[in-house]
Write a protein that binds this DNA or RNA. Sequence first.
DNA 1: TATTGACATTAGAGCAACTCTAAGATGTAG
DNA 2: CTACATCTTAGAGTTGCTCTAATGTCAATA
Lengths: 143, 143
Amino acid sequence: MKKIKKETQLDKTPKYTVKDVAKIMNISAYTVRYYDNEGLIPFVSRTQSNVRMFSDYDLSWFKTVHCLRATDLSINDIKNYINLCLKGNKTIPQRAKIIFDQEKILKENLKELQKQMKVLQMKKKYYTDLLKNKTKDVWNPYK
Amino acid sequence: MKKIKKETQLDKTPKYTVKDVAKIMNISAYTVRYYDNEGLIPFVSRTQSNVRMFSDYDLSWFKTVHCLRATDLSINDIKNYINLCLKGNKTIPQRAKIIFDQEKILKENLKELQKQMKVLQMKKKYYTDLLKNKTKDVWNPYK
DNA sequence: TATTGACATTAGAGCAACTCTAAGATGTAG
DNA sequence: CTACATCTTAGAGTTGCTCTAATGTCAATA
């Protein structure tokens, strides 16, 4: 008998409040509502009294959004990506392009940050030496 | 005879326009004016017809501002740092603290970005496999 | 039962750091 | 002398939050 691996299914039962998601994702409750209002999290359910309740499935969208935001993709571009995801496999090439492009951009950003880290460390050395009274505080490019 | 090393002096003759600085620093001309208006660049000279002219000395302030902004220090905090620099060596400990703190923050930001880079690379692999028809586009955490 | 407190909701204001527009001044080239 | 390229300013617009104010829901306590 052939062994069939069952597709991973994320739990869609609502169990997390805005506050819970904020804590889990380490973002503010304002931001959680903002992302929902902007339509970045599809199919969010509400209680009878209109209170948002998120599932593990919703959480996985938050993780996607969080990753893309962390790498500085705009809210609009993320909305676009999410909508492409919802449209099924005919949008795979477009989605792939977004991810590939973003990886390139992140790589460049990381390189730039590492460059600035080196500059900061020279400034750090400048002040460390100053505090040890080893040097005078004159104008120099490490200030 | 004792050899005295001459202190490095930056040229203060005005030679660069806003556009020149924008090009050199790889930022927009708007941002150049914005930084000047915000008082981040001290002693900027103007021609008789009110046109900004920047020197190498001014440029070195731009580099300081650029480095601190790149590591996400706020405009206000940078203004504070610049003003401390202008107040002379009694402000060394305060300036040192700003730089040391900022280095810690940058280190954390870099760590987070590297984490997101790994997530992005998993997404990249997900789409690379999809495009090779090796996998199906089902919901999974790499999307 | 009434009220208090802890939460949730919304619309919309506020903010940081640009980013751009509009209107006007200046300088150079034809 | 005119055209246009480039500078100036004040102020409006944008993005992505962040917060406030007014209101609603619900459980627990006086």
